Amino acid sequence: MSQRWFITGSSRGLGRALSEAVLNAGHRLVASAREPARLSDLEERYGDAVRTAALDVTDPVAAEAAMRIAIDNFGGIDVLVNNAGYGNINSVEDTDLDDFRRQIETNLFGTIIVTKAAIPLMRKQHAGHIIQFSSVGGRIGAPGRASYSAAKWGVEGFSEVLAREMELIGVKVTIIEPGGFRTDFAGSSTQLSEGRPEYEAVVGRAASMQRELNGRQPGDPARAAQVILEVAAMGKPPLRLPLGSDALAAIEQADRAKLEELEHWRALSVSTDYPRAQV
């Protein structure tokens, strides 16, 4: 069955791969990007099945205007994908506050702004699916990416709350957690800094690994797009879905370590309760 999609960050990377997969599957799409001219080839290839929108996700007015394009052309939205985002590498000490704010504004507040713009449409429809792009860095603190991880952990918490609320109005929520994919994210989309020598073991290593792995990441964007299409067609989709063997392995290892730490400190944790006799 044909669906009406809205995707942010459609001009490159996973957003571009997903936009093309959506259109090739016979769905309709509002493809959005900061520079919609970079989406003109989609209009040429897919005609009336696609509309493009200029969208800075940090601008609530622009988000509302983009939603209006979906309403005017397709009558609503069945699937919203909050994909737009980026992440730089530097140490906490050397990342200036403006850089922190910009990354959090785009990755977290951008997701919140676009989601809030879409909710009234989906509430009226009593149906829809919101797909939020987080990251393996939204489950594990990524060295050298404090701003990005802070934002993506925020996306995870926001989306978990959102899922509980949206369930009441027939709207599904899925959090996508990609590992390394062969996209522009690891190239010109990222500013890399090794930082001070004191942080070489984590920050410098993260920067050098990103340079070395660029173009050799294990994840295939086209296959990821097909998985997201499959998730969007599910009656009962997962709340969280890691993408890629690297993401799955890292999250699995981190979750085991957290459970072990929780158990190790159990007695100290429960020691803060009032004694049972005083309850």
Rank of each mutant, 00 (worst) to 15 (best):
Y46K: 13
A257S: 14
D78T: 10
G180R: 15
E43T: 15
D255Y: 14
L162D: 03
F158M: 12
D48S: 15
F158W: 05
G85R: 08
L14I: 14
W153Q: 04
R102P: 00
E160R: 15
S188Q: 14
R139T: 03
A31G: 01
M1R: 15
P143C: 06
R34M: 01
R45G: 01
R16T: 02
S159V: 03
S19E: 08
S193Q: 12
T111H: 02
V202Q: 07
L239V: 08
A267W: 03
L18W: 05
G110Q: 07
S147L: 04
D56S: 11
I175H: 10
R123H: 07
E105R: 08
R34K: 11
R28E: 06
E35W: 00
R211T: 01
V92C: 07
A62H: 02
D72M: 11
E35I: 12
G141E: 03
S193M: 06
L243P: 09
D255M: 13
D94P: 00
I69M: 04
I175N: 10
E260G: 07
Y148N: 11
E35V: 12
G154N: 11
Q226C: 02
I175D: 04
T52L: 09
F100D: 02
I228A: 02
L213P: 00
R266E: 07
E194D: 10
P36Q: 04
S91N: 04
R205F: 09
L162T: 09
A163Q: 10
G195E: 02
T58S: 13
A53E: 03
L23H: 06
D96S: 11
V173S: 05
E64L: 13
E252F: 04
R240T: 08
V203Q: 08
S40L: 07
Q125G: 04
A232H: 04
P238N: 08
D220A: 01
G157R: 14
T52M: 02
A53T: 05
D220R: 14
A65V: 01
G157M: 08
H27L: 10
L80E: 01
G215N: 12
R266F: 03
L248R: 15
V57F: 05
W153D: 01
N214I: 00
A232P: 06
V22A: 08
S149K: 13
G137T: 13
L42E: 02
E260T: 14
G180T: 06
W153E: 00
A151H: 11
Q253L: 12
